[in-house]
Amino acid sequence: MSDPDDRAPVEATTLDGNAMAGDLRELFAVDVTAARYKCAGCGHADAVATLMLWGAPTGRVARCPHCSDVVLRVVRAPDRVFLDLHGCVRLEVPLADS
């Protein structure tokens, strides 16, 4: 069992979100509808494109076709977009050049 004091110095992990820019650009510059989601409710996994979409003017609600739980939500404000992934355990995004 490792002693908490044996962990790497805190300085090694004090990066802000900018350090993820490359990773996120790679993820979100692709067509996310081709990505595979895993539903947090039932574990069902399939392409985002297969989710059942409810396009209420308040926001888009994408539900799992297997258990109907909400997998992801997109809310558009005039100056912002909110992406809520509460119901998604994982997104698996295929890379273009692999």
Binding site: A77, R80, F82
Partner: peptide, 16 residues
């Protein structure tokens, strides 16, 4: 949880 205001007073336009 998806971005809307916690209170939502229409007279203060608390939408998001």
């Amino acid at each position: 949880a998806a971005g809307y205001h916690m209170y939502g007073d229409p007279w203060l336009e608390q939408r998001y």
